[in-house]
Design a binder for these strands. Sequence first.
DNA 1: TTGTACGCGTTATCAG
DNA 2: CTGATAACGCGTACAA
Lengths: 335, 335
Amino acid sequence: MLMNIYDVSKKAGVSIATVSRVINGNTNVSEKTKEKVLSVIKEIGYTPNVFARGLGLNTMKTIGIMCTDSSDLYLANAVYYLERELRANDYDSILCCTGTDLETKKKYLELLLSKRVDAIILVGSKFVESNDNDNSYIKEAAKKVPIMLVNGHVDGENIYTTLCNDEDAIYSVTDTLIKSGITDIVYLYTSNSHSGLNKLSGFRKAHFMHNLLLRPEYTKLCNKDYRRAKEYLTELYEKKVPFNAVVTSDDYLAVGALKFAYEFGLNVPGDLSIVGYNNSILAECTEPALTSIDSRVESLCITTVKTLMGIFNGSDVPNKTYITANIIKRNTTSF
Amino acid sequence: MLMNIYDVSKKAGVSIATVSRVINGNTNVSEKTKEKVLSVIKEIGYTPNVFARGLGLNTMKTIGIMCTDSSDLYLANAVYYLERELRANDYDSILCCTGTDLETKKKYLELLLSKRVDAIILVGSKFVESNDNDNSYIKEAAKKVPIMLVNGHVDGENIYTTLCNDEDAIYSVTDTLIKSGITDIVYLYTSNSHSGLNKLSGFRKAHFMHNLLLRPEYTKLCNKDYRRAKEYLTELYEKKVPFNAVVTSDDYLAVGALKFAYEFGLNVPGDLSIVGYNNSILAECTEPALTSIDSRVESLCITTVKTLMGIFNGSDVPNKTYITANIIKRNTTSF
DNA sequence: TTGTACGCGTTATCAG
DNA sequence: CTGATAACGCGTACAA
């Protein structure tokens, strides 16, 4: 039933070497034999066995994509764009969702490596542990295949990073808000990851540059939980802590702010300005639609794959590429 | 650098056959040699070459997952659950996003087949063409490997289906709405796919059962475009066509209805009841939160993988499994 | 319980 | 331009 290269060679009256040459587009084949072989291939419906090919070439043109959770809005987009770009370059993508537990991440990275993938893409800042010792598993893996980080950074040989300049982005909106006269700003954030800390630092920097002191209640870790965001704002509100803007590190949290405003009948953006992050589908679907920072996932992914292909064909590629975020103005801010 | 089974056998002072037995958990190995081999494997960091193994066994324990767009809320969830379940069964997932063009779907299915995946999972009703002739490529593929459909159905040998009973679900909410006295209901839907038509027919059936006649303006195809939903409702509203509920085939469209209500200052659910579909993140994030039909993606995926594993180990498995949707009551309805 | 030897289907090298 | 043949690394009959 399943044909192999010998069947083709027999039927075409040539050697398997010639068949192989035809398949792989080797020029040293006469037009006549080439046509004959091609016609036989079509006739008997022959497809080269990828395992045998993989065995010889030691590659199956497959990239491992790891993320903590591919159903997350941001990561789902990233996975989509990565797969699309990889496929455009004739690479398959093996998806692997790890969750956030470090041991599980290690285990799956090891697993992917054992599958002989040609490279591994780690998507999202959740793969970079704050304690750099905990990142050694990534450096170790980089000894075998290129490791590409999308929106995370680890220093090391054979590790490549593409990231969005989160700090600047948050700095920039906060600065804009302050310049527009809004100075009591609450910053709600999802995580203490490297990226999370960067954003926070952008928020602080904007205050520093304007000589504003930042009340400790104005920054709050809420994880990825819009309820917690809403509750925290409610708490501040009931304590009469004044605030007239909420900047967030994720649209989810901005949704919480919106729900808070809705519950207390606050006008957005009249009484309260709200800024989301990631420019996800949520930003469009809420009412009013969220002003949100576009972290440029698509560009991030395109760049990542382009860099990877550069590595594969021996080009000189940058280890670290920054992409600048855009602020997408919608209806929760008046600047 | 990269060790093979011969290196292990040499270092352990046994034959490669023994090493192979140890790796594959064959019982016919003395405890002593087993330990020795294991220690050598650990020492030199040996990992079996999956290509060579694949060549012999003619499988790499890999499943192809095809979907039109893995960044879609529903499909992203499905992909996540499928990957999780497959991995729990020691299978890798190759992701392949096809878009909606039939020729591209065919091409990618062929591609996946040529990669010698052990099965292919087609996720979403978008893979079932309304003209059954156009589904022959699926039947053809099923001659090589099992084809699993998640929320779609094609009749044929070696094709297995798990789906949510969409028709019943829409029938049921519509019926509930009507019983609560709301009879002017607009149904907005995304697609004329098989599943889409089923939902529509559930909507019609509810009217039929209550002896209500259904105005043609009350059903409208809007694709996956909340703006179009909003525009259409606006159009009806301005034409004074009365309606006090909107049932949709997707939360996206319910978002459009919500935006319409917001714009015209309609109270939801007082003036207008709204029902979404898929119980996506959107349903929670809007204000008021959407009553939505939970199409049970997770169950669908778990069942699909369970069925697939059943096929692999020769069990007798059902060709078609139905899963009943749940109505998740939130704040856009008063029933 | 262990080892030998072959098959799996390619690609690549080298000789012609 | 073409063909023979050696890897590639593993699993497994079969032999011992």
